[in-house]
Amino acid sequence: MKRHEAREKAVQTLFQLDETEITLEEAIPFIVEIPLDEFYEQLVRGTVAYREEIDALIAEHLENWSFGRLPKIERTILRLAVYEMNYTEVPARVVVNEAIELCKTFSDEKSGKFVNGVLSKMNK
């Protein structure tokens, strides 16, 4: 699995987990086959493990928005991107570009601009 595809699958998995009672172990088989791609697994498990810290970081960098008002897809993409920026060796510019591409796939151009703005503030 290529890294972009792993990110897309990670967004789908994390989206399922948001505001539901489903567990990570239950969500994964709906999206990917076993054996798991190593990069996908790192993204999903890492984002889930550091979710509280990630959410706090995102909330700190929002202007005129509260974290709870964020649309679910933008929140999910931001969580994944913040995990990558803070807990992996992936360069920030790659993470931001991938997040924008994910917004194009799962949402729209406005979403991409919003996510880009939040991540750019975090990357200063």
Rank of each mutant, 00 (worst) to 15 (best):
R51N: 04
V48M: 11
Y40N: 07
T105K: 15
T76P: 06
L24S: 13
V118S: 03
L80I: 11
V95T: 05
T20L: 14
R7K: 14
Y87D: 04
E8L: 15
P71G: 13
L70T: 01
R3A: 10
E89I: 06
Y87N: 07
H61G: 01
E74G: 15
F30K: 15
V11L: 09
G46W: 11
V96M: 04
R45Q: 08
R69G: 00
G68N: 06
L70E: 02
L102S: 03
P91N: 11
Y40A: 09
A49M: 15
V94S: 10
K72Y: 02
T20C: 11
I31F: 13
W65D: 04
S66M: 03
K2Q: 09
S107G: 02
Y87W: 01
K113S: 12
E84W: 06
S107M: 11
R51K: 11
W65M: 09
D37Q: 09
H61L: 11
L57Q: 05
V48G: 06
P35T: 05
L78I: 01
R75G: 05
V118Q: 08
L24V: 10
P71L: 10
N64C: 09
M1F: 02
E33D: 15
R79M: 09
E63G: 03
Q42F: 08
T47R: 01
D37C: 12
Y50F: 12
E98K: 02
R79A: 01
K110L: 15
V32M: 10
G112V: 07
R75K: 14
S120D: 07
I22R: 12
K113E: 15
V11E: 10
E5M: 14
P91I: 13
L43C: 14
G68H: 02
E26Y: 03
A6D: 15
R75E: 07
R45A: 06
T88P: 07
F30Q: 15
V82H: 00
K121S: 10
R69H: 04
I58N: 05
P29T: 07
V90E: 09
N97H: 12
Y50I: 00
K124N: 13
